[in-house]
Design a protein around this nucleic acid. Sequence first.
DNA 1: ATGGCTTGAGTGTCAAGA
Length: 257
Amino acid sequence: MIQKIATWNVNSLKVRLPHVLDWLAAQRPDVLCLQETKLEDKAFPFAEIEAAGYHAIHHGQKTYNGVAILARSEAQDIVRGIPGFDDPQARVIAATVDGVRIVCAYIPNGQAVGSDKYEYKLNWLRALNAWLKDELTRYPRLALLGDYNIAPEDRDVHDPVAWRGQILCSDAERAAFRTLTELGLADAFRRFDQPEKAFSWWDYRMLGFQKNHGLRIDHILLSPALAADCTACAIDRAPRKLERPSDHAPVVAEIRA
DNA sequence: ATGGCTTGAGTGTCAAGA
C-alpha cells in the first residue's frame, strides 16, 4: 500500500547519500524519486539503499542527469527514457509500485529562452505529454514526480517581475505544464492550503535560501483516481538547512490507505 | 555588474545548473 510518495533533486547522489539515508529513516516514504544522481548505473549505491530497507532502480549516466526510484516494495514494469523518444540524456524512469504507476522525471533546464537547449526542453515536454496521455489509459493510478524546471505561476516565484519571461517561467514552458494538467493530472501541492512564498529550489549564491529567494519547480502531479485519495502535500525545507545541502528540497504527498 | 555557489572532470579551469 502506497501512503507517502516524494521527489527530491539531490544534485549528486554521491555527495548527498548521507542526507538521503537520514531522510529515508526519518520520513519512511513508500516511494522516493531522485533526480540528478550524476552517476553511472555501476556506481549507484544499491547496497546502502537496500540496507535502509528500499529497493532501487536507476537510469543513470556519467556526470549529468540520472534518475532513480527508491521503494519499499519491488518495482515492476520498469521503463527507462520516454518510449520512442531518442534521448542520450538519462531523465526518466518509470515503474509500477503497489499498483501505482510512478513516473520520475528530470525535465530539461532549457538554459535560456530561444536557445537550442530551450527547443530541446519544449520538444522533450511534447514527447512526455504524448507518452503520458497513453500511459493514463493503462494506469488510472499514476503519479508524475520530479524536477520540472518550470514555475507554473507567478506565486511560485520569489520575484515574478524579475523572472517574467525568463527561463523556467516563460509562457511556452508554463503552457507545457498546463498541457500536463489538461491530461487530468492535478498539482498535489495546490490542492491544499499552503504558506505564501513556498519554494522547492533556492540558488546557492547570494544567500538565496536565507533570503527565501526561490522558485517552486519540483512537483507531484496526480491522476484523478490518485488525487482523490491525496490528503496532504508539503515541501520539506529541513534538508536545505543542512551542511552541504542540495539546492532543492523534497516534496512529499500523502495518499489515503 | 551576466557576477554571486556547487558539482564533476581532472590537476587547468571549464560546463552546467536554475
